[in-house]
Design a protein around this nucleic acid. Sequence first.
DNA 1: TCATAATACCGGA
DNA 2: TCCGGTATTATGA
Length: 149
Amino acid sequence: MKGILQTLIETEMGPVSVLIEEGRAVRIKLGGLFEGVPKMEVEPFKSQIEGYFRGKIKGVDFPVKITGTEFLLRVWEEVRKIPYGRVLTYGQVARNLKTAPRAVGLAMARNPLPIYIPCHRVVSKNGLGGFGAGVEWKRFLLELEGVVL
DNA sequence: TCATAATACCGGA
DNA sequence: TCCGGTATTATGA
């Protein structure tokens, strides 16, 4: 599958779209579509995201292309290790990486691939913390994974 | 509780 | 370069 296109998934919370370039996911958007990009059904992106939202699978793993600074890549890699249904605080992730909580928050805000990089599993020490697509998405995802908080 | 500093990093001027 | 802005946290009154 060549070129640039997107696949659309309907969920209880609203639309989720995956932007795909040269057969690899480059961005995932919660709650909207990418402007001016042709839509089609693209596997395996579509079925995996659907499976995740239905609680059938505990994670997604498809070809991706992730770009970012050295630091961002390190943080995203660390976050990807957090298992389904578990959460860490910004501070805990920061300690693992010998950096500061605030820098971790910054890296989360720049996550191009939510769900694939489960940034919703990184929460504030006292509360939910923020979320790019809106905290209601974060709450929904954690609830889906059975996290009480 | 509320304010404030420390902190690591990023992007724009 | 410098500077302001973060999806934070620890501390002191």
